[in-house]
Amino acid sequence: MTPRDVAVVAFARSDHHGGADGASEPELLLPVLHDALSQAGLAPGEADFTCSGSSDYLAGRPFSFTLTLDSVGAWPPVAESHVETDGAWALYEAWVKILTGRADTALVYAHGKPTTGDLADVLTRQLDPYYLAPLWPDPYALAALQARALIDAGHLDEPPPAEAHAVLPLRAADFPAPVDGAAAVVLAAGDTARRMCDRPAWIRGIDHRIEPQAPGLRDLTDSPSTRLAAERAGAFRAPVDTAELHAPCTAQEVVLRRALRLDRTVTVNPSGGALAADPVMTTGLVRLGEAAARIHRGASGRALAHATSGPCLQHNLVAVLEGEDR
């Protein structure tokens, strides 16, 4: 028996330009959901399953995802779920739902408003609450530790000494500026996908793996979880022409390129990647969407998309998407 074929048939994202100018999460989402649903020819509430990703810690209030249902059109009630992490994992849950046969179509969305607080402080709350979080090491400091390990291992050049550093050995330009944003994807199975999209981006494999959190337990120059997820997703069975990588620091892209064995024939982050825009909790779903959109346009035949969560690339998701020649 062969599993069901599932494809990304539509993708939309908000224009990322700093803060959301007072827009609430539902206001941020509404145009994006409308765009994605229109592409797929679905009315609000018509998808068989809905799944979203977001974090209360960015919104600064509990149950922040509940009000976004106002943008979904969840009346009559919808079959719906939510992950408290990047929307890439919401896409994974929706993919599983379609594989069970209980849904043919799924709306996946994510939103993040990291500009409402001090993101560096907020992300320290992801760390071990007993031994690490009390020290408040922010993601920039942890990424710098990773960069230093890469330099020591000879995988990264020592930066020129004259340059101003944000946090040694990294410069401000090595990190994205946080922006507010939202993104949406429509998934569909088999012939439904072919009806909705001229060139669906078929999910040939998708997998995710986590590592222990403590930086001292990990080789920060490597990402075994990314490599394992890529193996399970079938990424190494044939070369990809495009890779969308979720690396919220330049040094982390070095780690990912090595783990995924990407050579110079692969176009990496044609969208600009996470460095161009990092709407936290949305950035990973945007990588999947951008890779799919490139296939929709005929600019890619086989693309890899990656999403990450947690400090120093702790949790990684890899998907392999393909176009179909007809």
Partner: peptide, 23 residues
């Protein structure tokens, strides 16, 4: 604790496995 599945991955024997956090 923000997204405690990250910190709890090790305690739940999940290293090298998929962990999905639902809310």
């Amino acid at each position: 604790v923000m997204m405690p599945e990250l910190y709890l991955a090790d305690a739940l024997g999940a290293a090298g496995k998929p962990v999905l956090r639902v809310h």
